[in-house]
Design a protein around this nucleic acid. Structure first.
Lengths: 149, 149
DNA sequence: CTCATTTAGTTTGTCACACAAACAATAATA
DNA sequence: TATTATTGTTTGTGTGACAAACTAAATGAG
């Protein structure tokens, strides 16, 4: 039986629950990023670079941005010493982008905080419910973006 | 039994499923907005104005933005004829912001598209699963933002 | 092998969005 | 009434995104 002093809120309609949940996570990522002066796009950037050393072009594809947007993104990250441009061994026009050790430290810290904060959010659910949520969300993710599988 | 030609993707870890689901929805909102030349913040703005006529200050609180950000946001929306500033009857310094009929038409269209697109996304789940998802997401939303209830 | 075409990345110009600090006008209060 | 607080705008700064024009290098057709 529910504790009468913390009344159960009414159930959000499906679409509302999807949208509001999305904003909830987005805002959390935003705040965590802000603590390290990182925007969400920068978190995504560093996250990608954790285990890759892509060209500018590949980065544009990963992030779904125009190549001209990548130039500025990398410029700013490089100015802060988080990434570096490494001349491509096979193409004199191109660079590969690599995390610096500072960048690696920062993204590891950030991802740890994300892990903890979102885990905390999900702590209102039981272990079974958390498994269910991951399963349902995964199904929608893969159905919508089949190329991810 | 699963169709061997559409292999079930592996289950995402909880935190990954939360983050990726959030981006999935965010991207969908972005695309739907773009079809009407609306950013996500503008969709949120118009959505708030659907059933309110707040002051600039109240708008800043609703959207979690600085008041100086609201000036520009409303300027742009007003230039497009989506909202109007109405002199406050009680405070000669202030305005209330009101949707125009064009703005109302636009947000109604947009929200209908959001409703449909997200409903489609959730169509890979059974009715029971959709109810479960809404329930689990709602629990996390209200636990994280108790003032919403 | 050479010339035309394509590709990789940058530059330039434009705009939206967000903040902070300074400001003007009005409201509230001591 | 005089001081203080509040409302909203302005100004200045920075990030992020795109498109179009551009440079340099790679590729491919003949």
């Amino acid at each position: 039986m529910t504790n009468p002093f913390t009344p159960s809120p009414h159930e959000l309609p499906l679409v509302d629950s999807m949208v509001q949940f999305s904003f909830l996570i987005h805002n959390a990522l935003n705040k965590i990023g802000a603590q390290h002066d990182l925007s969400i796009i920068q978190i995504r950037l560093l996250g990608i670079l954790r285990d890759r050393e892509p060209s500018m072009q590949q980065l544009a594809q990963h992030l779904g941005l125009d190549k001209s947007s990548i130039t500025g993104l990398i410029d700013r990250a490089q100015r802060r010493g988080l990434v570096e441009r490494v001349a491509s061994p096979t193409d004199k026009r191109g660079f590969n982008v690599r995390l610096t050790s500072d960048g690696m430290r920062l993204i590891e810290e950030g991802e740890a905080m994300i892990e903890q904060q979102l885990t905390d959010m999900a702590a209102v659910l039981t272990e079974d419910q958390r498994k269910q949520f991951a399963s349902l969300a995964t199904a929608m993710i893969y159905a919508a973006q089949p190329y991810l599988r």
